[in-house]
């Protein structure tokens, strides 16, 4: 599942509609379907960190995105960026090809109204610092759209619509290209452990053996003898796996 953290409902609204997310009855404002879970954090790095932590500790999330608007003295309003450096010290790992430009971002505690900055926001660092407690840096993504050239303003719905709509398809493609971790089916280990009442360490040894077989594309032996004494049963099982 992919998590999305937005500071404001205004930033999230178009994603909620586009992906058909449904509001959940929860402590936070959370909108979900079976693939995406979006949380509204409110402004600032602390709020973002809290919401990110909440989402990651209550859902099975393998990738998380901080999506929102950002100020810039350099880029044009409406341009979209994938962030590759936060406050000169945090580096989301960008390991897949993507349709966006990349930029660094500086995260401030106050609204920034002057200076030379590629991108500025108020959430990125808090989001990232919370996310790294749960995920690796290639599973953490920040997508920012330039909303202003460092002026303080209240964006209208129409403004946000014009800003975000042109990028929705690319954002969707990006989310679809994120990988879910691969799992091996080790049900056979569970079944044998249960049937022959194996100890924890016996089960681990058996798991290693089964993994060796699976990774070598060897056919697993069919084990189905009558249960007797644990130690003997285990030896008999392991004898079936020839290495």
């Amino acid at each position: 599942m992919t998590g999305i953290v937005c500071a404001y409902f205004k930033e999230a609204k178009l994603l909620i509609e586009y992906f058909g997310l449904k509001k959940r009855n929860d402590k936070f404002s959370i909108y979900e379907n079976e693939k995406i879970s979006l949380i509204i954090s409110n402004q600032g790095r602390l709020n973002s960190a809290i919401a990110t932590t909440y989402l990651l500790s209550t859902r099975k999330i393998s990738n998380i995105i901080n999506f929102g608007i950002a100020g810039s003295s350099e880029f044009e309003i409406g341009e979209i960026f994938l962030v590759n450096k936060i406050n000169n010290k945090f580096f989301p790992d960008i390991l897949i090809s993507h349709p966006f430009r990349e930029s660094e971002i500086i995260c401030f505690d106050e609204v920034v109204e002057s200076g030379n900055y590629k991108l500025v926001d108020m959430e990125s660092e808090g989001f990232f610092k919370a996310a790294i407690k749960f995920l690796k840096s290639h599973q953490i993504h920040l997508i920012k759209i330039v909303s202003d050239n460092l002026v303080c303003f209240r964006p209208s719905d129409e403004f946000m619509n014009n800003l975000i709509t042109p990028h929705l398809k690319n954002i969707e493609n990006y989310i679809n290209s994120l990988k879910e971790p691969k799992h091996f089916d080790l049900k056979v280990v569970e079944d044998l452990a249960k049937k022959y009442d194996l100890s924890f360490s016996q089960k681990e040894q058996l798991k290693n053996r089964v993994m060796y077989y699976l990774l070598n594309n060897l056919e697993l032996p069919d084990i189905d003898f009558k249960k007797s004494e644990r130690k003997n049963d285990f030896r008999r099982i392991m004898n079936e796996f020839k290495i």
Partner: peptide, 13 residues
Amino acid sequence: NPYYQSFRAQKQA
């Protein structure tokens, strides 16, 4: 140095 990287994932890029 950060601990929150994946050696394995980074090998792809």
